[in-house]
Nucleic acid binder design. Structure first.
Lengths: 197, 197
DNA sequence: GCTTGAATTGAACGGGTGTTCAGTGAAAAT
DNA sequence: ATTTTCACTGAACACCCGTTCAATTCAAGC
């Protein structure tokens, strides 16, 4: 019966992924060495290769896991109602999900260029699948006559940029609660998309 | 009579700054070596140190020059009129200026963490001075009653994120001209800020 | 044509990089 | 109690890093 990896030092596996995520977010992929990660995990560098193929995989897995979790979480919400209601739901979901995973979000936006071309393409596919969800809402609103955007593609990019920007400054315990931030952004998002408020 | 630096190979000075900017934008500060920069300039690595104190200065100067140019260009426009008119002006200026300097913008947003703490603080000062310009317009609009934003600080961050996001996808010669992109974003920005359109 | 002086080279410095792998030692299985 | 298993170490590999500086080279001034 095979012992599970890590039964000796009880350190690796998920801990490696968490540590890599944290260090990549704090110092950047290129600036973090395998030896640094190993030291934080409490192990020598060579031991990491029992749990990851290479450094690139640590980055790709972090980004891939994040994007898959994002898509799965949104699918699970599957909001009903007219386009403005679904747009509000999307905005709240986006802010909530991203605020809870600041490190992964930061990596997903900052470390794209450190992916190999194949890995980059895979992440981009996931990202555009998520953007298509917002695009679908805007298109539905346009068709229903409940939303008015000057250009669906550009409005998609504009609203995603606006919502993702929250992560650059939002910190729990600041001037505004996350709920209040959501309210404020929902207001601006709906107005920008030409909803009747 | 001192010869000007570079009279031998006629290569360095501004060419070094341009090359560093281009490579930093393409591959990231940490991934670009002084030897690579030197090779692109057509010189050995040691020679770069006649034109820059160190690698960090190349990054800081690029970001600092960009931010100073941004502020100076905006001061030079000094738009008149009511807040919605000035907001439209700001949106067009921001898109135009940033589209013309994609590399510098990319670096200014991606390489902040590779600055030393002192250099980071200096860049942040410049950045917040620029944000204060937009904030002033929104505040004026609120006072005039020509704009309605739920929170001036958050609206500032939201609109800047939205406008800066243009740089992630806009390419000259794409589906929409830069003028058309400006029009579309102005529409969304004014709506988001509660202008009567 | 010679001297001067600085722009540039190229080697060296001390250190870091991702990754591999023979060897070790302790826990699990018998 | 012994054997087996395998997580882990630590040294090595080949290479790259930013930076310095004595030596070289070449254009300008005389």
């Amino acid at each position: 019966m095979a012992r599970k990896p890590g039964s000796r030092a009880e350190i690796t596996g998920p801990k490696l992924r968490e540590t890599a995520l944290r260090l990549f977010a704090r110092d950047g992929y290129a600036a973090v060495s395998m030896r640094q990660i190993a030291a934080e995990v409490g192990v020598q560098a060579g031991a990491l290769y029992l749990y990851t193929a290479d450094k690139q995989s640590l980055l790709f897995d972090a980004m891939s896991d994040h994007m898959e979790a994002l898509l799965a979480a949104w699918q699970a919400e599957a909001p009903q109602g007219d386009a403005p209601a679904r747009l509000e739901h999307f905005a709240r979901f986006h802010i909530r999900f991203h605020a809870a995973r600041a490190d992964a979000v930061f990596i997903a936006y900052m470390e794209l260029r450190n992916l190999t071309p194949e890995n980059f393409a895979r992440i981009e596919t996931l990202r555009s699948r998520y953007e298509a969800e917002l695009e679908g809402i805007l298109r539905a609103g346009q068709d229903e006559g409940t939303l008015t955007v000057p250009d669906i593609k550009l409005a998609t990019m504009a609203l995603i940029a606006m919502l993702t920007g929250v992560n650059t400054w939002f910190r729990e315990g600041g001037r505004l609660s996350r709920d209040r931030v959501e309210d404020i952004y929902v207001d601006m998002v709906l107005k920008a998309a030409g909803a009747r408020i």
